[in-house]
């Protein structure tokens, strides 16, 4: 390495930051003494480093502290596994939805009829018996009227359908007796349901009355436990903050003491300088003898 071959930039940087091994360091130092160009470069970069030290960030009061979250926040933010339905493919969900709708429609006995009055949608099993009742009310009560009405309806049916009148009248008769049976069965079912509901209500009231005190005690105990836990947590936080405050006060006190001492030292120095200056002025202004 001589004056014409300068130090590589990376080597110079490593030398500036003192991250070179001993032989390399000696070699670079020798070259810097001999080569004015590299010496000036080294001096300039070192000067930049000196100036860089003037840049200080603002004195920010930070005081970050990690505090534990409350139980409510923890339960609210805790990660849970995905719901099972999110793992089922979409097509399977759609099929399941259609099946559910179909079964629901079957259970609800949805019927759509179209007639001269337009479309009619009926649901539920009770409506069918009600329509049966309506049909029954439309039929004459008198057996004579019944047969007449039946034959009239049969004739009407023949007019529309033709050939089916022979079977229509017995069906109408059977529907009348079936409706009467339905009515009796419904009345008895209603009575039975009322009895069962009454029985279950009284039993439920007994159970509730007997279990209420223990449930209240458990709730009170739980509230007391929560209160105790909350108090303990608050005490811990208070102790932590007091410790922190105490520490900060001590640090600040020490810093203040040092500053006061420095100020005193500075004042004494200034006074001494001023005294010397006064003495000098007095000596200078004194009449020459």
């Amino acid at each position: 390495m001589n004056d014409t071959i300068h130090i590589e930039n990376e080597t110079l940087v490593a030398y500036i930051y003192d991250e070179v091994d001993a032989p390399e360091k000696a070699r670079v130092a020798r070259h810097l003494q001999q080569c004015a160009t590299c010496g000036a470069e080294y001096a300039a970069l070192t000067g930049v480093r000196t100036v860089l030290q003037a840049w200080a960030p603002p004195h920010a009061g930070l005081g970050f502290t990690v505090v534990p979250r409350t139980e409510a926040e923890q339960s609210a933010r805790v990660l849970r596994p995905a719901p099972w339905w999110n793992t089922v493919p979409v097509w399977a969900q759609a099929v399941a939805a259609i099946l559910v709708l179909a079964v629901s429609a079957a259970v609800a006995n949805i019927q759509v009829r179209s007639g001269a009055d337009g479309f009619a949608v009926t649901t539920g099993w009770m409506s069918q018996s009600a329509s049966a009742r309506e049909r029954t009310s439309e039929l004459p009560r008198d057996p004579a009227d019944l047969s007449a009405g039946a034959s009239a309806k049969a004739e009407a049916a023949i007019g529309r359908e033709g050939g089916a009148a022979a079977t229509r009248a017995p069906v109408a008769t059977a529907s009348v007796t079936g409706a009467e049976d339905w009515k009796a069965a419904l009345v008895s079912l209603e009575q039975q349901l009322r009895n069962e509901i009454r029985t279950s209500r009284s039993a439920d009231a007994v159970v509730r009355t007997s279990s209420r005190p223990s449930a209240d005690e458990a709730t009170i105990r739980r509230v007391q436990e929560l209160l105790a836990a909350s108090e303990a947590r608050q005490e811990r936080q208070l102790a932590l903050r007091l410790t922190q405050f105490n520490r900060d006060v001590n640090v600040q006190r020490q810093a203040d003491l040092v500053r006061i001492q420095q100020l005193f030292g500075h004042s004494e120095g200034e006074i001494s300088k001023q005294r010397q200056m006064l003495n000098y002025v007095m000596r200078a202004s004194a009449p020459q003898q």
Partner: peptide, 16 residues
């Protein structure tokens, strides 16, 4: 270094 020199800090000049 160039920025500092442009701001009048001529002491950082070098010949290289």
């Amino acid at each position: 270094r160039k920025h500092l020199e442009s701001q009048g800090m001529t002491s950082l000049n070098s010949g290289r």
